[in-house]
Amino acid sequence: MVQAHPQFHTFEDFLAYTEDIEAYYELVNGALIEVPPESDENLYRALQLYEALQPLVGMRQIRLQGLALAVPGEPKNRYPDLTILRPEHPDQMGALGRAAITLDMLPPQLVVEVVSPGAENHRRDYIDKRNQYEWRGIPEYWIVDPVVGQVTVFSLTERGYAATAFTGDAVVASPSFPGWSLTATAMLAL
């Protein structure tokens, strides 16, 4: 007997179907594609950033992985390494019953991705996700790249994202979080 693979037409269909599934999936052209687990080094870097950002935004507005973010294009969702929510998001997600930000919600304040080694991962974070986060209207996107030793801050302008790269002992400047004081070296450290 051949089992039919479900097709999903909306992000809400995807959320309903994956509610009781433990793994993470991206919705690509109506099909589920399992997202591989993160490396321990990336998880640790994201955790360090979580702890550094928490005093600036509070625990209620910060999420480590596991948050399904609806985006335009393909795939239709991403699981950022770290997300800073807007104040209304926790209540909206509570009403939704899922750790998810749908397209009808405002975009998060900040999304952070930690780049894994490999050309495909580099392309995904620097091109695919960058474009999707820009199209989604996310005000700020950070790429923490231990492979090239830099942190890139993308700030949304009227013309799209403007990028600023930070290396070494340069303090990473965040337009959304002026109290941020970590250097690129500190953000890249294990």
Rank of each mutant, 00 (worst) to 15 (best):
residue 1 M to T: 13
residue 2 V to D: 12
residue 2 V to T: 15
residue 3 Q to M: 12
residue 8 F to E: 00
residue 10 T to S: 15
residue 10 T to C: 02
residue 11 F to V: 04
residue 17 Y to S: 02
residue 18 T to Y: 01
residue 22 E to F: 02
residue 24 Y to I: 01
residue 26 E to T: 04
residue 28 V to P: 01
residue 37 P to Q: 11
residue 38 E to P: 07
residue 39 S to C: 01
residue 40 D to K: 14
residue 40 D to N: 13
residue 40 D to E: 15
residue 42 N to D: 11
residue 43 L to W: 05
residue 44 Y to L: 14
residue 48 Q to G: 11
residue 48 Q to T: 07
residue 51 E to T: 11
residue 52 A to G: 06
residue 53 L to D: 06
residue 55 P to S: 04
residue 56 L to T: 03
residue 61 Q to S: 10
residue 61 Q to W: 12
residue 62 I to M: 05
residue 66 G to T: 05
residue 69 L to H: 05
residue 69 L to E: 04
residue 69 L to R: 08
residue 70 A to I: 00
residue 76 K to N: 08
residue 78 R to N: 06
residue 80 P to F: 02
residue 82 L to K: 11
residue 83 T to D: 02
residue 83 T to Y: 01
residue 85 L to W: 09
residue 86 R to N: 09
residue 88 E to H: 12
residue 89 H to C: 03
residue 91 D to A: 15
residue 91 D to S: 12
residue 95 A to L: 12
residue 96 L to S: 00
residue 98 R to H: 13
residue 99 A to K: 15
residue 99 A to E: 15
residue 100 A to E: 05
residue 106 L to S: 10
residue 106 L to P: 08
residue 106 L to D: 15
residue 107 P to F: 01
residue 108 P to T: 08
residue 111 V to F: 02
residue 112 V to N: 09
residue 114 V to S: 14
residue 115 V to P: 10
residue 117 P to Q: 05
residue 118 G to Y: 02
residue 121 N to T: 05
residue 124 R to H: 13
residue 124 R to C: 11
residue 132 Q to V: 09
residue 132 Q to G: 11
residue 134 E to W: 00
residue 135 W to S: 15
residue 137 G to F: 05
residue 139 P to G: 02
residue 139 P to V: 09
residue 139 P to E: 03
residue 141 Y to P: 07
residue 143 I to E: 04
residue 145 D to G: 09
residue 149 G to W: 04
residue 149 G to I: 00
residue 157 T to F: 00
residue 158 E to T: 10
residue 163 A to F: 03
residue 163 A to Y: 01
residue 163 A to E: 14
residue 165 A to Y: 00
residue 165 A to F: 00
residue 166 F to R: 04
residue 167 T to D: 05
residue 167 T to C: 11
residue 168 G to E: 08
residue 168 G to A: 08
residue 178 P to A: 08
residue 178 P to Y: 01
residue 178 P to G: 09
residue 179 G to A: 14
residue 182 L to K: 14
residue 186 A to R: 15
residue 186 A to L: 08
residue 189 A to L: 02
